[in-house]
Design a protein around this nucleic acid. Structure first.
Lengths: 338, 338
DNA sequence: CGATTTTTCGTTAGCGTTTACGAAATGTGC
DNA sequence: GCACATTTCGTAAACGCTAACGAAAAATCG
């Protein structure tokens, strides 16, 4: 059925190893025979069986990508950037969308491990490192995206999330807001970092606000971001005096929050200026285009790809590299007050 | 390093095959020994090496997904639905985003073939069947999404695109529009089918319009949908008398077209009612929420998964199955005239 | 209790490739 | 033309698993 090395070797009267050498561009083969073999390979449309190769070399050319939600713009862009860069090196991406379900994520990682992937890229939705530890035990390189786990050895690529919070809050302050609320994310490294940035900026400007100005909106797995944003906005609407600025953990939440604000008769940005995070591609097309912090998702994907390639080409390079990108604020109408 | 069957077998004083039998739940093994083995397997955290298994069984548990653009809401949803359903059966998804580049797509398919995938799911951006034929030659089952290639044997899952065009156009007519323009898609089965539906609906109502009411907007690979939509809208603005209704090939193009219409001082839907296609998740949140035809992307993904599972479980089932779903119109403000 | 069936297990071979090693062919120095 | 290094190739074994077969053990039957 399908053509194997054996067939080509038999056809040309050489041994299988010689064919193998020609295909992998080994030095210990005469140019003439190599040419002869490659000609036949091309003519028969032969492709080496990577499964077999993988079994003996121990390298599968497969990269595992585990994200909470494939359709989420942030992770989607990462997948795209990663895929584009990995292509040249003939690595392929095995993806898993864990639906922000910690148990599912753990199972997926477990199963993917059986495919003997060369590297894992994980944006974990877990609070612990249980699934990551299994990867570590298996001796597979691991790149963390977006989430950090202090004390756990792995590589990291992402933006500086403290700066994200600072950028957003500083911007609102610069626009003249003084009563700035924050719809914070989950109790993870990201959620905490952004909230920390928010506090930093306020402190820097001597603005003191009650704790009630920071409202939680549950976990990513609770329900979709919009309804969580709407719920959080309820709480904010109840604050007296009403905030004049709002920094949301991400754009999806901001969309829900803004929707609710409109229903309450508020005008954006006049009554309350809003800043989101993620700069999702639809954020510029909303009823009121949303100011947002760009997380450089595309660039993150490409940087991960580069990191992986260097990791796999010289396995004993850096033990634990950390690539931190600068976030960027994209100002739009939702915060334009002057 | 990593534990193998051999190790477990040696530990327990049984043969490797016995371990294999226990793991695959074979009938020809005593319950007692099976239990003994499974206990040890669990305790050692053993997972069979799928690469090795794949080499001998010829089945990799890997499904290839080739789409023009992973971040496109339609394909993203499909990937998600597919991944979710395949999970239970322990199949994994290898994805490739071809960036709507026909050459890239061909190369990707070629490379993926080397991984000996169990099945291909392709939303082709090619006009010919060159890459698909290679899949066919390799004897790998193929499911086509969204695009059909008449005369080419494969499975198909997607919506009825003629009906998409009819639904959109009938709706505009029902809203009172009579001069209905169409920004058509590329010269592929989808583009043609939707344009055909548009013509059908007009004919059914005895509406005759000049050819200039159908404007092309280039290929998907030309540039992003929005700028293509803007460009197409230029042509439409030049029509005398100006159309009072517009059916766009997809939502992204509709966004561009509407943007340009706003700039020209038109009001939507009052001056021109707009219907898109795809019902992307941001379409309801636009400045003017967009009426759109839902393509059932999530359902498509799930149906594909079911099809694949049945294909792989009984390989000699139907030769060429075709699953056609009904599109659904979601009415919003952009076409609300009465 | 011996003959026969059924259950349980081990042996051998092979999936398609690469690695390690050694042998043959070719080239180089004098 | 001989000793040696270099280039080019082939043989054997292995990667971790499963398929096919047959042997041993246990169960069933008259």
């Amino acid at each position: 059925m399908t053509v194997r090395m054996k067939d080509i070797a038999a056809d040309l009267g050489v041994s299988v190893v010689t064919v193998s050498r020609a295909l992998r561009n080994r030095p210990d083969i005469a140019e003439a025979t190599k040419a002869r073999i490659l000609e036949r390979v091309k003519r028969l449309n032969y492709r080496p069986n990577l499964t077999a190769r993988s079994l003996v070399t121990g390298r599968s050319s497969l990269i595992g990508l585990v994200v909470p939600d494939l359709i989420h713009p942030f992770f989607g862009e990462i997948a795209k950037g990663l895929s584009a860069r990995l292509r040249d090196k003939e690595y392929y991406l095995i993806v898993s969308s864990s639906e922000s379900d910690p148990q599912l994520e753990q199972d997926e990682v477990e199963h993917m491990l059986a495919h003997h992937l060369d590297c894992f890229v994980v944006a974990s939705s877990r609070k612990d490192t249980d699934s990551l530890r299994r990867i570590d035990e298996a001796g597979v390189p691991l790149v963390l995206v977006d989430r950090r786990f202090p004390g756990f050895a792995s590589h990291f690529v992402g933006v500086d999330d403290v700066k994200v919070g600072e950028l957003a809050t500083e911007h609102l302050i610069a626009q003249g807001c003084r009563r700035i609320a924050h719809i914070r994310g989950p109790q993870t490294s990201i959620g905490n970092a952004r909230a920390e940035g928010y506090s930093n900026a306020l402190a820097r400007h001597g603005i003191k606000l009650p704790d009630s100005y920071v409202v939680a909106c549950g976990e990513a797995s609770d329900s979709d971001g919009e309804t969580r944003g709407r719920r959080a906005m309820e709480e904010i609407l109840a604050l007296k005096p009403c905030p004049d600025g709002l920094f949301c953990f991400n754009d999806t939440i901001a969309v829900g929050a803004m929707d609710r604000a409109f229903e309450a008769g508020l005008r954006i940005p006049k009554d309350i200026a809003v800043v989101g995070c993620g700069n999702f591609h639809y954020s510029s097309k909303l009823k009121v285009p949303l100011t947002s912090i760009d997380q450089k998702s595309r660039e993150i994907g490409e940087r991960i790809a580069k990191l992986i390639v260097s990791l796999l080409e010289k396995p004993h390079s850096a033990r634990s590299r950390s690539i931190v990108l600068e976030p960027e604020l994209i100002a739009r109408e939702s915060s334009r007050l002057r």
